[in-house]
Nucleic acid binder design. Structure first.
Lengths: 119, 119
DNA sequence: CTAACTGTACTAGTTAGTTTAATACAGTTT
DNA sequence: AAACTGTATTAAACTAACTAGTACAGTTAG
């Protein structure tokens, strides 16, 4: 299940969309697996069905899910969407590295940080 | 000078605030240096003075600038603000690394990426 | 002191985005 | 036929961002 927070400044539909995208692209939810229906999820999260529908619509446009009238919404085959997301995050990564280095953080320090506990 | 974009979904005051914060903490603008006045910058960017004032107010709260009634706004001594910003960006960095690794990007790949052209 | 600059505060109105609400239609399944 | 599914539409409420106008307070140059 996913959670939403009213403390989070992001709109609800973005929280729902981002939470499912993360789980789907990470493989937590397998291709073909069914998502809760628009009405059921809106009821569980105590928000309006339109809010959930917007999240699902954007997930479908991204290629993360496939919605079929009368049947439901299902996790899609996401190789393409995963690659697009990877590129997007790597771009953010490069920008972040650049700003951190302008603040005096060294490449070595960042390298150790991604390495975890290897060196 | 800084630029704003009406294509950018971020509010104008955030664009102004973030642009100056970046330049100030990177040392592009030296401590003591005077910023354009609220009225002058609002005129140059063709936005309302209130919008600029909000950006300046937040920069002052962050410790990046110091505003004095009647005199103007000046770049502050930013060692504290820089350290706070560094911590903030490193937290974002860690989250980004975690999400990238959940997409199958390896630590090695990210390490090479921060290193630039060293390997 | 006056004029022209500076930051700051306040109120009001507009606009855009988010969310809710209610309703309706279309396809699937039992 | 009934109960589920996604989808579309319209209206309203609410909030944040932005604009507009005005006013006040401190500084500086004449």
């Amino acid at each position: 299940m996913i959670h939403i927070s009213y403390q989070d400044p992001r709109p609800i539909y973005e929280q729902v969309r981002d939470a499912y995208r993360q789980q789907i692209l990470a493989g937590v939810l397998a291709p073909g697996e069914q998502l809760p229906s628009v009405r059921e999820l809106s009821s569980r999260l105590a928000v309006n069905p339109n809010t959930i529908q917007r999240a699902y619509r954007e997930l479908e446009q991204e290629g993360c899910i496939s919605s079929v009238r009368g049947k439901g919404s299902f996790v899609a085959d996401v190789s393409g969407a995963a690659e697009a997301r990877r590129r997007e995050l790597l771009e953010q990564f490069d920008q972040l590295v650049q700003e951190l280095e302008s603040l005096g953080v060294t490449s070595e320090e960042l390298g150790q940080r991604v390495g975890g506990g290897e060196g």
